[in-house]
Write a protein that binds this DNA or RNA. Structure first.
Lengths: 160, 160
DNA sequence: CCCTCCCTTGACTATTATTGACTTTCCCCT
DNA sequence: AGGGGAAAGTCAATAATAGTCAAGGGAGGG
């Protein structure tokens, strides 16, 4: 069955395949024009087909001379951990993060120094927000989980 | 996709790179003339690309024989940044963090990969807490600032 | 037949760039 | 010392992009 999204996807894939560095820079409006569709259609295609789980990174800039840059990157075996985080958002305690970070270090997904940064962001920083008004345990766990999740996604993107 | 601001930015960067002391002195009007643009365009480029968050300091003088001096900030400016964070806790926006991280990378205080981790913790993660009950702008900025501050302190400790 | 999952669209929002009118500063000449 | 003119600064308006979100459509499965 015909699908505009599939068409656009194939078009972009072709462009990337033909690029020397697996990266292209386009304009959303121009592409939408070529395919005679709403500009937000491009966003849909990017979100569903060129996300990190499919091995792509998208960066963009708005405003005059704005652009959308799409890069192909390798993916690996960290993905199950991200899924786990999504499923256990509210119950990710400090000690869980500690365990995960240690594991990441042991597996050499991250360096010890990077581990220190992760601990700073997910443990130390969250111990200093007591004065703010968002300090319920569930909220803090959720927040911790999301920070950690984003870090993991970043690691995922960066591998090789 | 052409961008005058990007052009001017590159031009200035090139000048600074080619200077013996990481500092150049130009005239706003003359530069505007070279690029055939409004003089205030230069101010825009300076404000968005050569601010302290991106590791530059700009000084200037008006009037006869006025000038604009652009300096790359040396590495030992990192601690003042921490002080700045303390003083501007509620107004540290995403883009400020982005600029600071880019600067840390450029100065090789952190690796690009570490920069990605920091971005994940201070930008991406905080974009995903909208549903929680601590999503006022000031609170988010404060949280962002504290996470970033802890990471910075960690970087400092590791360097020494 | 109806439900669900994609897909598609468009209205609204956010961000970035560019320009020009007006303001401020301060060197230099008288 | 004072004023004129030559810088640079500020700010708001406009234009050019991209992003978000919610509502509607259609095809296929139960």
């Amino acid at each position: 069955m015909y699908s505009l999204s599939d068409d656009i996807e194939q078009h972009i894939i072709k462009l990337i395949d033909g690029s020397p560095d697996q990266m292209i820079t386009i304009q959303r409006g121009r592409l939408a024009n070529e395919f005679d569709c709403a500009p937000s259609q491009i966003n849909y295609v990017l979100a569903t087909r060129f996300n990190v789980f499919r091995g792509f990174i998208v960066e963009s800039r708005r405003g005059g001379s704005g652009y959308v840059r799409i890069r192909r990157v390798p993916i690996d075996r960290l993905e199950p951990v991200v899924v786990y985080l999504d499923d256990n958002e509210e119950s990710l305690r400090e000690s869980d993060v500690e365990d995960l970070v240690s594991w990441l270090e042991r597996e050499e997904f991250i360096t010890p120094r990077e581990g220190a940064l992760v601990r700073a962001a997910t443990i130390d920083a969250l111990n200093k927000v007591a004065g703010l008004d968002f300090s319920s345990v569930a909220d803090r766990n959720r927040l911790r989980s999301r920070i950690f999740r984003e870090i993991l996604l970043q690691v995922l993107r960066w591998v090789e």
